[in-house]
């Protein structure tokens, strides 16, 4: 059984609604969800806020349908970039598990694919594409294992948006051939969520094959999460955590013991 993920749940200040959206996601069988904080630096007085700790949200996380584990909640930042100065990897970004960028111009799209240190590139779904996708940046993004995201909530809400969503998605699929695509919800209300199997089948409309459609909600999302982790750590190999002062003694005692064990084995 694949593990399904939905990496885009819109953040609302309404805590109750956010809780009910996450509960619905668990009910539908999503094992991991990401709460999406959008920052549009074009508008004035927009700042990157610290994400709320996920443990504040629930006392006990709801159990995922068909599994016995509780749902995992991540934080994700989406930067809407219309000028190159908007995307600056600062300390603020480090507080988030995932970083996404929503490029508005062709130049920025190129930069996002080739150089920006991001996990996800969002594709416009509410308007006609402001630029054409070119093969070289898209291939570059695939090589760097950066993923393209299509969100489906707008398609469900309104039928002109649906046309744009499908048209833009098909446009992208022609270039990337169904690779490195994730489909996520972007839901604000619990009733805008859809089940993972429905979504993988909805990929049919977006020009994804059966296999790619399923990968778009499961394995590709997992790759995104791992990519996000590698940004936090040194290439995903070394992980630094703050040492708990109460535990220091015990940890130091343990360390030589494990070394000795290794030597004996060798």
């Amino acid at each position: 059984m694949a593990v399904f993920m939905d990496l885009n749940i819109s953040y609302t200040t309404n805590k109750k609604r956010l809780q009910s959206v996450i509960e619905t996601a668990a009910q539908l069988g999503y094992s991991t969800v990401a709460i999406n904080y959008v920052v549009d630096l074009q508008q004035k007085k927009q700042e990157i806020v610290k994400p709320k700790s996920v443990s504040e949200l629930f006392k006990t996380f709801p159990i995922v349908q068909g599994k016995s584990r509780p749902i995992k909640v991540l934080n994700r930042l989406t930067v809407v970039a219309s000028e190159p100065s908007h995307f600056r990897p600062t300390v603020d970004y480090k507080a988030y598990d995932l970083v996404a960028v929503f490029p508005q111009t062709e130049k920025l799209f190129h930069a996002a694919c080739m150089t920006f240190d991001v996990d996800i590139i969002c594709v416009a779904v509410t308007e006609r594409l402001p630029f054409f996708f070119k093969r070289s940046p898209v291939n570059g993004a695939i090589e760097r294992s950066v993923f393209f995201e299509i969100s489906y909530t707008h398609a469900i809400r309104d039928h002109t948006m649906r046309r744009y969503t499908i048209a833009n998605a098909i446009n992208l699929m022609e270039i990337c051939k169904g690779k490195n695509v994730i489909v996520s919800s972007g839901a604000e209300h619990p009733l805008e969520m859809r089940g993972p199997y429905d979504i993988s089948n909805l990929g049919l409309l977006f020009g994804l094959s059966e296999e790619d459609g399923k990968a778009a909600v499961s394995t590709n999302c997992r790759a995104v999460c791992l990519h996000g982790e590698t940004r936090k750590t040194a290439l995903g190999i070394i992980h630094t955590i703050k040492k708990d002062p109460a535990l220091t003694d015990r940890v130091e005692e343990d360390a030589p013991a494990s070394k000795r064990a290794k030597i004996e084995m060798a």
Binding site: I156, N201, L204
Partner: peptide, 12 residues
């Protein structure tokens, strides 16, 4: 059946 299935998510 896939045509019908892919239309079902649009029911609101």
């Amino acid at each position: 059946y896939r045509l019908i299935w892919s239309a079902l998510p649009f029911i609101t």
